[in-house]
């Protein structure tokens, strides 16, 4: 597992609660969401037709918190990156570990789960 290499992104206040914002880091676009209690980050590209997930509505499906792609309503789990709807899809988007420090959102190339393990 990669060791997290944290970079500072933006002040937490730049991302309104329950909304997402796109961040371009080199060739990569990341969607960062403010869930009120915490922040999450996933690749800003729906596996279906490349829709901008940062523009989607935060939603729920069963026990998962998802984001609904604005183009065709695919729902992607924002914790695991797995497509939850349509359910037959086996697709996944990349996730990124997020941490808040000194009022700034920081992300790492490591997947979200790695940060949770590190925290645990």
């Amino acid at each position: 597992m990669n060791k997290p290499d944290w970079i500072r992104i933006a002040p937490v206040t730049d991302i309104p609660v329950r909304e997402g914002r796109a961040v371009k880091i080199g060739d990569l676009e990341v969607a960062i969401f403010n869930l009120g209690s915490d922040f999450v980050a996933i690749e800003n590209r729906c596996p279906h037709k490349g829709g901008p997930l940062a523009d989607g509505i935060v939603s729920t499906l069963g026990d998962s918190v998802t984001v609904t792609c604005p183009l065709h309503n695919w729902r992607v789990c924002i914790d695991t990156g797995a497509v939850r709807k349509p359910s037959a899809q086996n697709a996944c988007v990349r996730t990124f570990a997020v941490r808040i420090k000194d009022g700034l959102v920081m992300i790492s190339k490591a997947p979200a789960a790695a940060e949770q393990e590190a925290a645990a």
Binding site: I7, I9, I15, P16, V23, I25, G26, D27, K109
Partner: peptide, 18 residues
Amino acid sequence: PRTTQFVQISPIETWSSV
């Protein structure tokens, strides 16, 4: 505009390689 309503956020830092 509301907070970052129309912007794509520019990161303060970036990775040397992604």
